[in-house]
């Protein structure tokens, strides 16, 4: 393949990653924004989404489409409920102390990961996409007879990948509308601004926190369900995903939803493109160093505005 089509392919792959990453990172960002805690187990909720999708797909009959829809409903709800329970039994009891929350969620990370290893096993398993037609993409060439379109071999995507991008966009938009237009969202934002004041106004802050932690985890699980037909489910898949979400959320500005999405697109796309030219390991080294330096020198994120 020539350079041009190759780049386009890389961008398409990058866009899929960006979409899933944006969905997952918006969950992490929501949790941090409202509760001011960093959930290190977030990657495991993503992994659980993917693994549950596999289980559901194997338990539910009636074809790939029905199984996928069932997974997309069941997995986020189950994972969200599990996360809310963890919030009430663990995080609430340590009073959401930022440092202890990190230690406790590291513990949660290992518990979820290892229990998955004991039950689901160490194999990577695929889930069949609900639809998966190959879509060949055209490329143009400036030939002797002017501009000519042709279909280079290998330049294609699938309908499912395009669906992932669209679904992530719709879901993120839905979360945004939920936060800005509904009463529940308003309550969450009020809690984010000042939890003591919220308590004084009779907002059940503890329940809000449990809900937010659950929704955040549910978004990660949903991202896991979306990715599993492309990537396969594996009990260690949460680690890299967590790292990428951290990178996105920090570069986008901790707790800023809009910044998170911009950063997800930037990181997702550039990961796809950089990997074409450099080794993916080098790309990851640069990304982790960038995150560290952003936190040191520009803690509000690359896209956030400096607080007063």
């Amino acid at each position: 393949m020539e350079f041009g089509p190759y780049l386009m392919l890389a961008m398409l792959e990058g866009a899929v990653l960006a979409a899933v990453l944006a969905l997952m990172a918006s969950g992490l960002s929501l949790t941090f924004g409202v509760m001011r805690v960093v959930n290190v187990a977030h990657g495991e909720f993503y992994m659980l989404g993917a693994v549950m999708a596999w289980f559901v797909a194997h338990l539910v009959g009636g074809g790939a489409a029905i199984a996928f829809i069932a997974a997309a409903v069941i997995a986020p709800l189950a994972v969200g409920a599990m996360a809310a329970a963890a919030d009430m039994t663990i995080l609430k009891r340590i009073d959401y102390d930022p440092e202890r929350t990190i230690v406790a969620t590291i513990g949660l990370l290992y518990v979820i990961q290892q229990v998955t290893l004991m039950t689901y096993g160490a194999d990577a398993r695929p889930v069949e996409p609900p639809f998966n037609s190959r879509i060949a993409l055209p490329w143009f060439e400036w030939g002797e007879e002017g501009l000519a379109l042709y279909y280079p071999w290998g330049l294609s995507t699938t309908s499912y990948k395009l669906f992932v991008i669209a679904a992530a966009a719709v879901l993120i938009l839905a979360v945004r509308l939920f936060m800005t237009r509904t009463k529940a969202g308003l309550i969450m934002r009020a809690t984010q601004l000042d939890s003591e004041m919220a308590t004084a106004f009779g907002i059940p802050v503890e329940r809000v926190y449990a809900a937010v932690f659950g929704i955040g985890a549910g978004l990660a699980a949903l991202a896991g369900v979306l990715i599993v037909p492309v990537q396969q489910a594996h009990y260690l898949m949460g680690g890299d995903a967590l790292l990428l979400s951290f990178i996105v959320v920090i570069i986008g500005g901790l707790g800023s939803m809009a910044g998170t999405i911009v950063a997800a697109i930037l990181i997702g796309m550039s990961d796809g493109i950089i990997s074409v030219f450099f080794s993916p390991t080098l790309a990851k080294i640069l990304a982790t160093l960038l995150v560290a330096l952003v936190l040191v020198f520009r803690p509000q994120g690359l896209f956030g505005s400096r607080p007063r």
Binding site: I90, R93, I94, R100, V103, A104, I106, G107, L108, L109, Y110, V111, I112, Q113, Q114, V115, L117, M118, A122
Partner: peptide, 20 residues
Amino acid sequence: TDAYMLIAGVALIGLTLFAP
């Protein structure tokens, strides 16, 4: 078991909660 890191996870949560 292969899942021996489960012990580490449980210990981390338990220590945070009950015996800091």
